[in-house]
Design a protein around this nucleic acid. Sequence first.
DNA 1: CGATAAATTGACCACCCGGTCATTAATGAA
DNA 2: TTCATTAATGACCGGGTGGTCAATTTATCG
Lengths: 206, 206
Amino acid sequence: MISSTNKFDQLPTEKQARIVNASISEFAERDYETASMNKVVERAGIAKGSLFNYFKTKGSLYYHIYHLAIGEVKSYLRKVRDETADLLFEERLAKIVDSGVQFITDHPRLARIYFRLIYSADSPDRQKIVAELQQLSDDYLGEIIQDAMDRGEIDSQINKSQAVFYLDAVLNRFLKEFHESSSNDNQFDRDEWVKGITKFFSKGLK
Amino acid sequence: MISSTNKFDQLPTEKQARIVNASISEFAERDYETASMNKVVERAGIAKGSLFNYFKTKGSLYYHIYHLAIGEVKSYLRKVRDETADLLFEERLAKIVDSGVQFITDHPRLARIYFRLIYSADSPDRQKIVAELQQLSDDYLGEIIQDAMDRGEIDSQINKSQAVFYLDAVLNRFLKEFHESSSNDNQFDRDEWVKGITKFFSKGLK
DNA sequence: CGATAAATTGACCACCCGGTCATTAATGAA
DNA sequence: TTCATTAATGACCGGGTGGTCAATTTATCG
């Protein structure tokens, strides 16, 4: 029994896409509790019974969708990490911000689901999910910090997990702000901010 | 007609307290959409019709409660701002963190409502509320930054609204983390963190 | 084609929601 | 005590929820 027994995976690709697309829209617009399976089937153009045949519960559909979102985030992170391995810390930071901005621009609905997961999320298994994302962030930013320490670009006396925390806090908050302002087509000077952020991390406020 | 026409305000204090207490618990445990008026009346030990007599809608009850939460936050902020006016920026930062920790310890349910407002909140008037809180934060942290600039403690060339943003991002994130970890009775070294944060803001990571 | 198996459907279920309002209970003045 | 006014109550309403399953359509194969 190598192949998945999952009913959904056996579906024609086009139908899968319709369902995934409908689910992403629904879970992006409403949080877990408020999102409606009725709306999903309506958007996807399938019968309710079918959806519950492919996914036994609302929770399992949500699980599928947010793993998709996290997977996409990971792919962006991996890409920018590998492509910037040789750059200086400050340049690297700028590229990471760029990559985040790009992700939000390319996948605004997934971004919304991601931020919901991070920040509020009365979702099932919230603790598990958050712990998983925390681990992802620790590994990812931790590696970047470590590289910079090894090259003597930042003070290696600094508590590494604290440094990761600050990076994570500022980057996530900045991207959340960008995400919300780009929903309301508010413009802001990206370069100005990227410059400010990198300088802030290097020198602090003094 | 000087006195409020608000039905709720005319109630005996004890009854007001029961209703407020029940509402705080409910809105702390569940987000706006998921919170239940039925649960509130059950907790408060009053009839449903009564509650809807005091507050015409769920939204107006929520409005009352979150204004209460924001009011309490403001009071803590004002207090620490005034009491630390003479301190150095770093010492002041430490006191602010302390005050946040104290608020969360004293009012964990209000803290939860506050973080819900800040971070996710599919609440009614979300944009208005967030803008109001943003203003509060800008004014408050802006003043602290300005003081420190005036005294030459931090670089006055730095973009002030950016500096406020970094402060806000790191402080809020730290307090949110504290709030969640104190719900799960995870311990962590407060002093270690306060020292790290103030140093980070002063010198950056270099 | 006919028969069997598999996939799809949507009416239906029990439950909960915010909100209403006729009925009942408490209050206070004469 | 009587009676009018006000406050409190909870049964009830329309509507939405996640989830089920008998009935129907579609696909498969001899």
